[in-house]
């Protein structure tokens, strides 16, 4: 599978370094390595969700209990989480680090992903969620740390988009 193992390891290491100890996730192709890494790591609590919005509640509970967390999902999972983000994470000022695979951008071959690609950034902007892209492995550690810092200082959700250039190695 041409999902980049190297990029996934770099992202996972950055999450650990930023103090994340709870990861909630709903799988999609680009996230398989990251989810396996969380699963195999005895220091990490992986919460497998039925629907991504639950992850907002998991992260809010973890935060109130003093534990750092992150959500792993694709952009359609983000779209499925919007009410939880607004009426839990934003209303209650929860630092929430969301790693969102940016499907449906240039290079996307799956027709069903393309509408999500068109709207994801607009929805993030409408929600006033600070967002940056992880485009290259060399910037991952720095940007994950920066995102986590802002999530905590602002007490708000922040998003990092996992791009095709980073996650996908053309066979």
């Amino acid at each position: 599978m041409p999902v980049s193992l190297t990029a996934s390891s770099t992202i996972y290491a950055a999450l650990k370094a930023s103090g994340v100890r709870v990861v909630s996730a709903l799988p999609e192709t680009w996230l398989v390595h990251l989810i396996r890494m969380a699963e195999d790591d005895p220091e990490m609590t992986l919460v497998r969700l039925a629907k991504e919005e639950e992850g907002v509640g998991i992260s809010a509970g973890a935060h109130l209990a003093g534990v750092r967390s992150a959500m792993l999902m694709q952009n359609h999972g983000f779209l499925a989480s919007v009410n939880g983000i607004v009426s839990c994470a934003q209303l209650y000022r929860i630092p929430l680090l969301m790693l969102i695979s940016a499907r449906g951008e240039f290079g996307e071959r799956d027709p069903w992903q393309t509408e999500g690609g068109l709207v994801t950034r607009h929805v993030l902007d409408a929600l006033r969620i600070p967002v940056d892209e992880l485009g290259h492995a060399s910037e991952v550690a720095h940007k994950v740390a920066q995102a986590q810092t802002l999530a905590y200082s602002a007490s708000r959700p922040v998003a990092l988009l996992l791009t095709r250039d980073l996650m996908w190695e053309e066979a």
Binding site: G57, A62, A65
Partner: peptide, 22 residues
């Protein structure tokens, strides 16, 4: 006591997040 005054449905998920974290 924490009263999740919105976010219908998520009280159980939030409780799970606390229970697993602590």
């Amino acid at each position: 006591h924490f009263y999740l005054q919105h976010a219908m449905g998520l009280a159980s998920s939030l409780g799970l997040g606390i229970a697993l974290s602590r």
